[in-house]
């Protein structure tokens, strides 16, 4: 059963649509990635899930509660991209205050804070936050997101701007949390991190979800593994056989077909390599396609704009396009 359900979530700022009808569901214990270029609508989506931003339309239900419900806030841990702390407080005071605000009993809170800080390897917990390094501050912010022992964690760029050592530490910690059964919504620009921790992802662009599914499924949908077949062919005029050709095929049947053709012509296969696109390759491809679609749609809308009511036409245009995208990608 889904612990987090999002249905046709939309956010508009004046005439600008930041999130355009997102729908997805996340199962309990899943690590769900949200990726996309800057301005794609990732952070707005996460903030709507956290109850920070009120959606213009659509719903988000977290553990059976809607944003704005204090009970939902208790079941959720949110780590924003920037987590400015109250620098005049010590880590312990800061975390105890938030535990208090989440109605965590004092003894439970102290025990939980101690264990979390220990796991995060955070020393100097009685030092003022203002005197801590960026990595230490980020660890305190993560500890704060966990202080209420939430069912669902929303991590927005958890390792942004940190050194590789701390970054690895945080990614490993995220995996540990996942192993413990926490549901995590994870957003990062570093797609290697996304690939290493996420079970499923959505790729967003221009406020829309342009791809979704497991990373393997998305990879398959975007060409998947490619076979590069290298062959040499006798020209038949006594010339040395030194020209090498490369054939790119999608599967082993394609490889066989190439082999037959090459051998029929008197050539031979010299090498077969497999090329698997990284998430980054897919992301760039999807983003580029999405941008082209978006521009094309805008041009069409511009042409048709005079013939129909602006507002109604706009909405119906988006809706159709969204369905097409979903069908093509999912």
């Amino acid at each position: 059963m889904a612990i987090l359900e999002v249905d046709d979530l939309r956010k508009e700022y004046g005439g600008f649509t930041a999130v355009d009808g997102s729908s997805f569901a996340i199962e309990r214990g899943e690590v769900f990635g949200v990726v996309g270029p800057n301005g794609a609508g990732k952070t707005t989506t996460l903030k709507m899930l956290a109850g920070l931003i009120e959606p213009t339309a659509g719903t988000a239900v977290v553990a059976g509660h809607t944003p704005g419900d204090p009970e939902m806030a208790r079941r959720l841990g949110f780590l924003p991209e920037e987590s400015p702390l109250y620098e005049e407080m010590t880590a312990t005071d800061y975390l105890e205050f938030f535990a208090d605000l989440y109605d965590v009993p004092r003894t439970v809170a102290r025990d939980r804070i101690d264990r979390t800080l220990e796991r995060l390897d955070l020393e100097h917990r009685d030092r003022r936050l203002g005197n801590m390094s960026k990595g230490m501050k980020r660890k305190v912010a993560i500890a704060r997101a966990l202080v209420n022992d939430p069912d669902v964690l929303i991590f927005d760029e958890p390792a942004s701007g940190l050194d590789p050592l701390t970054t690895n530490y945080i990614i490993e910690f995220t995996q540990e949390l996942s192993d413990e059964g926490k549901t995590i919504v994870f957003s990062a620009h570093n797609l290697f991190h996304v690939e290493s921790v996420c079970d499923r992802i959505i790729i967003m662009n221009d406020g829309r979800i342009v791809a979704r599914g497991t990373i393997d499924a998305i990879r398959k949908a975007h060409g998947g593994t490619e076979y590069h077949v290298y062959a040499t062919v006798d020209a038949g005029n006594g010339a040395p056989i030194d020209d090498e050709f490369r054939h790119v095929v999608a599967d082993m049947a394609g490889v066989e077909s190439v082999r037959e053709t090459v051998e029929r012509d008197g050539g031979r296969i010299t090498d077969i390599q497999t090329e698997t696109p990284t998430l980054e390759d897919i992301f760039l491809e999807v983003a580029s396609e999405s941008r082209e679609n978006s521009e094309s749609r805008k041009n069409n809308e511009g042409r048709n704009g005079a013939e129909r009511d602006g507002r109604d036409g706009d909405e119906s245009g988006r809706s159709d396009s969204d369905e097409d995208t979903a069908e093509a990608r999912t």
């Binding site: 956290a50 109850g51 920070l52 204090p70 009970e71 806030a73 208790r74 959720l76 949110f78 924003p80 920037e82 987590s83 400015p84 702390l85 109250y86 938030f98 605000l101 989440y102 109605d103 704060r144």
Partner: peptide, 14 residues
Amino acid sequence: IKRRGELLLVSPAS
């Protein structure tokens, strides 16, 4: 300005 209020806003406090 320091965006500190963001974390209070996601807490159960209105």
